[in-house]
């Protein structure tokens, strides 16, 4: 691919790669912007930029990630994802076949998530100025419930996670130069809306939803504890982590509580609602490992964990990315 300033090269990219994949009525009109129908409900909007190395990884690619990441942020607002916009920054020299794979993944993830890509943009930068592809997506969704956020979380509420932790981060590391290992671990990247909508349909009183992306479970819970000014107590023995993720975390010296996920979330509900909420999540077939891992209580803004051996420790935010270590 050559450096194109908006001329014929970019035009051909759009014709050959993007349009065939993103077959939406609105994008197909090729106007400067998209017209949306009038919507009945309150809207939620979110935007996210995606940079990941390597671009392809077991269980996904930057393309599927760019859809899931954004539709999941909408789901965490209790909003059904409807539309996506997509911006691409491509590095000169990127193989067209690779780009096609990324775009195909993106289209498939959008289809599965029930969102339409309504408008898109592409820029090409000089070689060496980017890691192949960067993608920005903005999502628009309609809210099916009132606001859910840390401010609604109350002492006595239960913390539920939707499944086992750490697969995404470990899948990425498994193909990273210098660390690579062979494994059956695939990224957990997936759309969370079906699970969230099941909770809403069952009439569960949802106080807060948070996806467990960068920084993992620990960051999500610390953010909630600090925003609401409560203490969150969790029990290490109840936190679901698969054997291969544990194994990889052991030899790389990582703590799975800080490893990123792309298809896991926590939901905070009144304590009495917790068993039913877990049942609903499991019944979707998408959150078979869902379980209660802790509860909120009056206290300082922090996360405290009862360890497997019965001790207690603080689970703090991490400063910077976890790096594999030998010490």
């Amino acid at each position: 691919m050559a450096h194109g300033g908006g001329g014929r090269m970019t035009e051909r990219l759009i014709e050959d790669v993007f349009l065939p994949a993103f077959v939406g009525a609105e994008l197909g009109r090729r106007h400067d912007g998209a017209y949306l129908p009038e919507l009945q409900r309150r809207l939620a909007v979110t935007t996210d930029c995606f940079v990941v190395k390597p671009l392809l990884f077991p269980g996904g690619s930057i393309g599927s990630l760019a859809v899931h990441g954004t539709v999941n942020d909408l789901a965490m607002c209790g909003a059904r994802p409807l539309y996506l916009t997509a911006g691409f920054v491509l590095e000169e020299g990127l193989e067209i076949a690779l780009l096609r794979r990324v775009v195909t993944d993106m289209a498939a993830a959008a289809r599965e998530s029930g969102v339409e890509i309504i408008t898109a943009d592409t820029k090409v930068v000089e070689r060496g100025k980017g890691d192949g592809v960067y993608i920005n997506t903005t999502g628009i969704g309609e809210c099916l419930i009132g606001e859910a956020g840390p401010w609604r979380a109350e002492p006595g509420d239960a913390v539920i996670v939707s499944g086992d932790l750490g697969r995404h981060g470990i899948a990425i590391l498994s193909v990273r130069e210098g660390i690579e290992f062979s494994t059956r671990i695939e990224s957990d990247a997936m759309a969370l809306w079906p699970a969230v909508s099941a909770l809403i349909a069952a009439g569960i009183e949802i106080h807060c939803l948070r996806d467990l992306t960068r920084g993992g479970l620990s960051s999500a819970l610390n953010e909630i504890a600090r925003a609401r000014g409560v203490e969150i107590n969790i029990d290490e023995a109840t936190i679901p982590i698969s054997e291969p993720v544990r194994g990889a975390c052991e030899f790389l010296g990582l703590d799975p509580l800080y490893v990123a996920n792309e298809g896991r979330f926590c939901v905070i509900v009144p304590g009495g609602e917790a068993p039913r909420a877990v049942g609903v999540l499991k019944s979707t077939g998408l959150a078979l490992d869902a379980r209660v891992i802790g509860a909120l209580c009056e206290g300082r803004s922090r996360v405290v964990m009862k360890t497997r051996i019965g001790g207690r420790r603080i689970v703090d935010m991490l400063s910077g990315e976890q790096l594999p270590r030998i010490c």
């Binding site: 360890t307 497997r308 051996i309 019965g310 001790g311 207690r312 420790r313």
Partner: peptide
């Protein structure tokens, strides 16, 4: 020691 809260025991 610190990660597992051993000192409490």
């Amino acid at each position: 020691i610190l990660k597992s809260g051993l000192e409490e025991l």
